[in-house]
């Protein structure tokens, strides 16, 4: 089967419609992941042992099981206990929850990378806990986290096609429906690949800029 440019232009509006949803899911999912990741990271540092351990097991469990199955659980199981979510919301929560566990690791790594001496110095100069975090720890912990978080953002973007399995009309799903109705698979599937490749290559280039700006050298 040969490549048909006319067909590509014909399906372009549908694909762009799907791309819009893909990007929307990525942004919303990233917000959920960033916030929930912080919650996980804080709970893991909690001085209440069972709480810290429970969170740790939960994080490990989420990281050790497939996102697709987690999406199924949110989309199919929750309605049975009375929580009925629209597909898009279920998708955002699923992908956000999954990547929150990765974000939590990044937060933890960033905070632990701040040398002990800094904590002790803050204590020695009689800073309050709030001051210690706001003026000593976070300014050193956050910059190295940025490139790592950005990497997971791209990884998350690339996992959004999974949402087509729970009927979210994102890029992959639009391409599939176009392909199914026209019996032409080559153009839609290839275009989806091209969209993903172009967007991730651009993002990777942006990340190397971020890395040059923030990576490693927290002490500017």
């Amino acid at each position: 089967m040969s490549w048909d440019w006319a067909f590509v232009w014909q399906i372009m509006p549908t694909l762009l419609q799907g791309l819009k949803i893909t990007l929307l899911v990525t942004v919303l999912g990233a917000i959920v992941a960033a916030v929930l990741g912080l919650v996980f990271a804080v709970l893991r540092r909690s001085s209440i042992k069972p709480l810290a351990q429970g969170t740790s097991v939960l994080v490990q469990f989420i990281r050790g099981t497939p996102l697709l199955v987690q999406l199924y659980v949110i989309f199919y199981v929750l309605p049975d206990i009375g929580i009925r979510l629209p597909a898009l919301v279920a998708g955002v929560i699923g992908i956000g929850l999954h990547y929150a566990t990765y974000a939590a690791e990044v937060y933890r790594g960033g905070i632990e990378a701040v040398p002990r001496g800094q904590w002790e110095a803050a204590r020695a100069t009689n800073l309050t806990m709030r001051q210690t975090w706001a003026h000593v720890v976070l300014p050193q912990a956050v910059p190295p986290m940025i490139p790592a978080l950005a990497n997971y953002l791209i990884a998350m973007f690339k996992e959004t096609p999974l949402l087509s399995a729970i009927t979210v009309l994102e890029l992959m799903n639009q391409a599939k429906s176009v392909a199914n109705s026209s019996y032409r698979y080559v153009e839609p599937m290839t275009m989806v690949g091209v969209f993903f490749l172009v967007i991730s290559l651009i993002s990777v280039a942006l990340i190397s800029l971020l890395e040059a700006r923030y990576g490693r050298k927290a002490s500017r």
Binding site: K158, P161, L162, K176, V186, T190, V192, G193, L197
Partner: peptide, 22 residues
């Protein structure tokens, strides 16, 4: 490396399964 890291596993799988037959 860039190609396979740049597109998602899902896209690659569908491409292998649906496009390669053509």
């Amino acid at each position: 490396v860039e190609f396979f890291r740049g597109t998602s596993i899902f896209v690659q799988l569908f491409w292998v399964y649906f496009v390669l037959p053509f």
